[in-house]
Nucleic acid binder design. Structure first.
Lengths: 240, 240
DNA sequence: ATTAATTTGTCCGTATGTATC
DNA sequence: GGATACATACGGACAAATTAA
């Protein structure tokens, strides 16, 4: 474990314990080894381990009980499937209950160079921007910004408000089917907006998916940038 | 920019500047804004920005010259395509020169539960494990561990040594074609092994791809866990 | 029911790193 | 560069809660 490189020891340890929990390392006992034992495993002071555990408790991953130990509260990493028929709601159905989609903001705006290129429209064309957050069991799963060409999808905002689903909102706008053309996946440290939107702590990792959806004619219908908390979500690419 | 949450401010700033460089934000000038300007943008003291730049200079990403400014030395983000026909060598060809594949280790071992499930063989069956590092222009692009069922691929080690490519080594073992069945993508902080294998600094992010390749009959031929430095590589999923 | 062992919680103090002014 | 405030990490000691003998 490296020291004095800008990342506190307790945070490095918290990250490793969180990963180990997600990997199922402690599934047999349902709790972590004692603080003293973890301290010896990581070759650090017990106080440093305690700082790491306090951070994980704050996230709701573990819960410490005096005399009993540190119990694992949550070991779910939701798998988000990516394929030619990527659908958010269907994709996570069965892995979590109480799915909800929140519409944070909806604005008509002029296409930036990046958006214009992705949507294959002229720079400055009118586009619709939707800011959404998806939650499962009350915890944020993704924060997404979607751009849609206008005037084709002028009715999308109301449709999304009614249905809470892009797929069903598309259907109400006359688009019965669509395909995922391309997805770029990168990862970065959580930025300020992620801390709030996804309920993360600084230093956390977000998976960033940049996607283009097209209709059956190949016309671009959506450009979306989605941000997933990497400790709660993994992406699964199902070939073909 | 959040403070005192386990990640030093100078490291958060270094990470964001590194990402901005990789995204091409400063391509027009080829250099960073002045330290005082960066300090005001990030709302921190100039000393803090200097610590971030010193770290980036240490990595070889930028070079500060007194009187001239901070010049960008390296801005490479390679896009690694994932599809049903994922091939490492073909995928990055054209994006980088001097591609090399290093074989770090090759061992015959008994399949762990995880490996046995992925390869669809009995737990404890003989499997071949290959540890490889791919480099482009001398810089690590990925560190991968691959498992292959035995005895089918007993000759794979020699074949890989001769060809430097899994695809060509498969061909020498009589497997002319194979498909990517499934890819799981997650992200985590660099661990000790990543720091060495990928030449990263603590706090850096690695994209972790867990993949299963099958032959045309659907028999699993490879289970692989690849680790990519997130500031140099992004993954692209080409639908269908 | 007591006792002992285990485990987390809290307090003291000290040294060093981080960030600002 | 120096002064200041706070965070990080270590070391030790003991209290409090739970479990096992």
């Amino acid at each position: 474990m490296q020291r004095q490189n800008g990342v506190a020891l307790w945070r490095q340890i918290a990250d490793r314990i969180r990963t180990a929990i997600a990997d199922g390392t402690y599934d047999q006992t349902g709790r972590l080894p004692a603080e003293a034992r973890l301290a010896s495993e990581f070759s650090v002071n017990r106080h440093t381990v305690r700082a790491a555990l306090a951070s994980l408790a704050q996230e709701g991953v573990v819960r410490a009980i005096q005399g009993r130990g540190t119990l694992i509260e949550r070991r779910d990493r939701i798998s988000f499937p990516i394929s030619s028929r990527t659908r958010f709601t269907e994709g996570v159905a069965g892995q979590a209950s109480n799915l909800e989609g929140l519409l944070l903001d909806a604005q008509e705006e002029a296409a930036s160079p990046e958006v214009a290129r992705a949507l294959q429209v002229g720079e400055g064309s009118a586009v619709l921007r939707l800011e959404t957050v998806r939650k499962a069991d009350g915890r944020p799963l993704s924060a997404a910004t979607g751009w849609f060409p206008l005037p084709r999808f002028a009715g999308l905002v109301d449709a999304y408000r009614r249905t809470g689903s892009i797929t069903r909102a598309f259907a109400l706008c006359g688009l019965a089917d669509y395909l995922r053309a391309r997805t770029e996946i990168s990862a970065t440290h959580a930025e300020d907006r992620d801390l709030q939107a996804l309920g993360l702590t600084p230093g956390a990792i977000v998976l960033v998916s940049t996607a283009v959806n097209v209709d059956l004619d190949g016309t671009v219908v959506q450009y979306a940038v989605s941000r997933f908390p990497a400790d709660r979500v993994q992406l699964t690419v199902t070939g073909g």
